[in-house]
Nucleic acid binder design. Sequence first.
DNA 1: TTGAAAGCGGTACCAA
DNA 2: TTGGTACCGCTTTCAA
Lengths: 346, 346
Amino acid sequence: MRKLRHPKQAEIAHVAGVSPATVSLVLRGGTGASEKTVNRVREVAEQMGYRPNALVQSIRSGKTHSLGVFVPPYDSHWSQVLEGIHDYATSAHYVSMLLLHKSARERDDSYALEQVQHALDRRVDAVILCPYFASIYSEFLNEFSRRDVPVVTIGQAMPEGIVADTVLSDQSQTAMYQVEHLAKLGHRSFALVTDSQGVGWADCRLAEVEARLKCVPGAIWKILRCAHEEQKDDAIMDLLISPNAPTGFIAGTDRDAARIYAAAYKTGKRIPNDLSIVSAGNLDYLRIAQPTLTTVSHRSYEMGQRAAELAINRASGTLTGKQRIETIPVRFCEGASTGQSPARRT
Amino acid sequence: MRKLRHPKQAEIAHVAGVSPATVSLVLRGGTGASEKTVNRVREVAEQMGYRPNALVQSIRSGKTHSLGVFVPPYDSHWSQVLEGIHDYATSAHYVSMLLLHKSARERDDSYALEQVQHALDRRVDAVILCPYFASIYSEFLNEFSRRDVPVVTIGQAMPEGIVADTVLSDQSQTAMYQVEHLAKLGHRSFALVTDSQGVGWADCRLAEVEARLKCVPGAIWKILRCAHEEQKDDAIMDLLISPNAPTGFIAGTDRDAARIYAAAYKTGKRIPNDLSIVSAGNLDYLRIAQPTLTTVSHRSYEMGQRAAELAINRASGTLTGKQRIETIPVRFCEGASTGQSPARRT
DNA sequence: TTGAAAGCGGTACCAA
DNA sequence: TTGGTACCGCTTTCAA
């Protein structure tokens, strides 16, 4: 009676003594069948453990109700983005989600292309891309637009040719929080630790931070941006032990903040007595850092949700017209890593 | 010429002036077509941007080459497991992967059932489950076995009825490293901070740790396991400030270690001068904790890889027979959170 | 070497 | 109220 891995409608029809067409009708909740037939079919289907075959539905409808998600497994920020995407997708009932993420490795074109083709071959209704993927592999993105597969990017507005909706964290607001907080505490000598050039959001934020700093009377600052991560640690150390070391550290990411913590620990500098750190991000690092980190938090989960919403609305045709760029506000989280400027205290 | 979202073989056949059957033959790399035809078809397919429809292939072959992965988005451990699964799956070329993960929320049966049905409806070839899902929702797992969908669990051996391959971290080895390291440093008074009862691996590890402690002459220990996470913080505090506080803290997870760090910071106790902490896990917390955490690391990535391998081998029939339980060795990572017992130093 | 036709698991329209 | 049948996009005999 239940030898079949996945019972099919034909089997149910056979057992219930009706035609396949009727089974299809009933199982789809269609109207027109006699109550008796409905009950009979439902019952048989139930006990045979029938489950609709989404593949077949998709092949006919042309909709797979799935999203191709290109997101790195890096850190808690992306985990939360992923969670937001997944939760929205699930709730929209409109999709389940297909995950194709790229490891945080070195660039690998053939691997990336393979991932893109996986998404294409499985006919995802839309794709969501992280900044890294969107910028490094932008050449592959034509494959999507060429087939009218909607593209949504997170944290990276796309250049010229490529049409994609985008969800961004508010960099301007982030810079505002960072600079104002430190300025209010009396800091005037700053260090900006950020990512290497060419990363969209990093460039954008740096510009915003500098713009804000220019409005702080007497402010001076140094920029620390290294191509290689290892160099960063040394650069931070050097800065910390230099005479007239900056007291206000503005980190591009919590990851950078962690570097500064480590350097401070090594050089015996105290946070926030000798230096203050304000960061930006949303890593669960926060939970263990001592003193707790003052940071400007992305709303990662919300960004994921919003991205999924855009993707699904594009896919379903609910949303049409020119590309959208949505900015998600950030949240200031005061910790204990920031304090009065030593200069002011004296 | 390329108005079609996803060109189909029939279109190619039309453009190339051959029959659909021939196109299918050529595109599948089949033999028997004239070189001229092959070139012609390939060329047309290429420039029309043809991509095979995996849905159709799957519906016919009965294989979707996809894995249903039920993993929480929690922390870096699971991120790495996910990465391992994904990388192996990709390399096996045999699958792409479908992600259905459960949020770290409260139990929600209807949500879980929905996820299970998603996996079923999309006909995943096998599923991989995290301990939480496997134990809390074990009732749904029949749905998989009933349909001969192979199940692989990570970190949680399944009870009686349910047949599933399992990948485990070596709890015995973990306990050994933890206890021996502290014992060697002279500690005799321990605190075991662990998860609430009923979690498979936690129970197992606790038992192993106690067994080891019994072999340490003069060792005494207290067990801290609270139903609610919040209570844990208080319990740790109480313990820390009590007279004759333990000096050797054994944390069940890095998360617990973080609690101990925080409590130590608050009470002014110094690590490792006043107390030593050895943990188990693999969270990237490690990177920022000061002093660096001594921990026993899971090989999360490898566990994910192995799980995917088991799942795929079961799905493809490469692996048959009774369930496997694989134990992955752990790695001892010495940090600066452990030092000589104060008792010994005096 | 190429093509016609049946079929995979369903859906949907139309006739019975 | 039901059942027949063509069709979704592609594969796979089996003939031509």
